[in-house]
Design a protein around this nucleic acid. Structure first.
Lengths: 343, 343
DNA sequence: CTGAAAGCGCTTACAG
DNA sequence: CTGAAAGCGCTTACAG
């Protein structure tokens, strides 16, 4: 059972192999009759065109590269899941979503950006919380490969974000209205080149957070600002352990870095004998799958993941089809989910 | 800035383009001098060979297709993460891992199996908890594309599993030793063609579970057997809600279908006023990331995910290199993680 | 050790 | 509406 190629199908159907190709690609200039005859043979013999040949010849492969620090992180997975769901909803799962992870390593990130661009491994690239190296976005532009940034903002790329400032503001305001005075924040890196690097969303969330503090007359101090790098429960524990070594201990923590951090913070706090929310209020971020079930249930900021996934996928498909002029910047609304950890 | 191809590199280096190809592919028959000269040009111009051309010509693409019901499920993600980690550890992230999800739909599964085989989209296929359609495995064999099954066992494929029977036995025994009398089990589908289909691991876990009951003189009854299909928290809630409508209520539930089911069961039980573990002991499966932090912390069976990921990846790489004769069947050990939900 | 040449399986102007 | 032909960018025997 040799693998069938387009020529075999053509012979079996008694047509030229251009006709087969045209049928596969839904070209209009082919008679209904011929098309049907060919379709029948294709189904009968289970013929699948070689993707590499199609890609090589046409210069397009319709793959969407999805780049993130770690595929197996909560947020990445949920975004990927939302995109996946959309592919099924639209019936367009022909667009292969290919995940690339950088392992949070800038050198690997650069290499992947190059590989996708120069090796033509995808027709569009989606990058989650990535800071593309300077100049690369223009190269993508020139090569006709649209780039979509999630959790980042750049003029010369499409972007999809929640309103991070608003999210930070909402979290702080909720805590302030609850009477908290010494509110800390844990977030991703705030500065390029520093240990934790630069995270657009961290900077925005912190800005909103600070704005709320100021508006309520609380002077934002840096004593409870902590940055973090890998967004895990273990890291949350570690950070709050170190906070407990300070003289003053905060009465609230906003984990802009995500629910996993928040779960870690709560674990550490409980271990140190603090009652949640009485002694310490905790607000997370992302409304991860298990946030409603941890102890106590976590108050958090929800990102409308499905909406983000839908936007990203549709945008990628449209952009591959060159249907977008200029750059599109989508901002979606965050939502405060009140549970028990910060009441 | 036109994209550079192998001919351009050859011209720039002043050699034939076979020489460039040989350098790229580490052929031995090339002088050190020539190789270096070519390498320098490649780096300088950021040349990346076209993957589709390589694939088309060589018939190999070194991609590993990873198929599961839903990429964004806990277990899938953790397995993918483990594989990913291994790719970085070995430096072999040239093997692209391409996830395909079936959306738990048999027709889509069949289509994907065909697509990968006939469209040559990957050099190896890894399928998680899938029942390949009859005959397809032989076709993969003939095509030289190794197939690796996780959470399933078939003679004519490589397989990686935990000892599911033992896992079921351990869970039941722990509950029995704790004095539980009316133990229920929730697991995946037990029979092909039935509503929930057939899951190899469900059947094995239940067999081990039943064996323990018998050994302790408890007659296994079917009244507390529930099957499930999507392994979510919501489903767990739904199932236990319906169990609560029975006259007799179990004093223990083993959620062989995973920790998400277990979290759902606990939510439902608490809602009905049951105390955990006093009124109801719950044992989960998988030791998912948040299991230690739910309320109460979940006793569960841990699968050594990293070991599984490592085995799968190494096996795929070896098999692509034709270094495996016959079929390899790996079985790894489960582990009971005791927390508070079943003491 | 080096290079010329065939060909992988398609798509896409182009001519009829 | 149909088909002949060029060519995408590589790899790999093969001859020298």
């Amino acid at each position: 059972m040799k693998k069938l190629v387009i020529k075999d199908i053509a012979k079996l159907a008694g047509v030229s192999y251009s006709a087969v190709s045209k049928t596969i690609n839904n070209y209009p200039d082919i008679s209904e009759e011929t098309r049907e005859k060919i379709q029948k043979i294709i189904s009968k013999y289970n013929y699948c065109p070689s993707k590499s040949a199609q890609t090589l010849r046409s210069g397009k492969n319709n793959n969407i590269a999805f780049m993130s620090g770690r595929v197996a992180s909560h947020f990445t997975v949920e975004i990927l899941g939302a995109i996946e769901k959309r592919t099924f909803a639209t019936g367009k799962y022909m667009h292969g979503i290919i995940p690339y992870s950088t392992n949070y390593d800038t050198a690997i990130m650069n290499e992947i950006f190059d590989k996708i661009l120069y090796g033509r491994e995808a027709s569009a690239i989606v990058a989650l919380a990535m800071n593309p190296p300077p100049g690369i976005l223009q190269k993508y532009r020139k090569a006709g490969i649209p780039a979509i940034l999630i959790e980042n903002y750049m003029e010369n790329a499409h972007t999809v974000n929640i309103d991070n400032k608003k999210a930070g503001f909402m979290a702080a305001e909720y805590l302030l209205k609850g009477g908290r005075k010494n509110i800390g924040i844990i977030c991703g890196g705030l500065k390029a080149g520093s240990k934790f690097g630069y995270s657009y969303s961290a900077v925005e969330r912190k800005a909103g957070f600070d704005a709320a503090l100021e508006q309520y007359g609380v002077k934002p101090g840096d004593e409870y600002l902590e940055q973090c790098g890998n967004y895990t429960i273990a890291e949350g524990i570690e950070i709050f352990d170190s906070i407990m070594e300070n003289e003053k201990v905060p009465d609230a923590i906003f984990c802009a870095s995500g629910d996993m951090t928040a779960v870690g913070v709560m674990e550490s706090a409980k271990k140190h004998g603090l009652k949640i929310p009485d002694d310490l209020a905790v607000v997370g971020f992302d409304d991860s799958q298990c946030s409603a079930f941890v102890n106590p249930p976590l108050t958090t900021i929800r990102q409308p993941i499905e909406e983000i996934g839908t936007e990203v996928f549709d945008m990628a498909v449209e952009a591959i089809g060159s249907k977008i002029k200029g750059f599109r910047h989508v901002v979606v609304e965050p939502e405060l989910i009140v549970r028990k950890s910060a009441s």
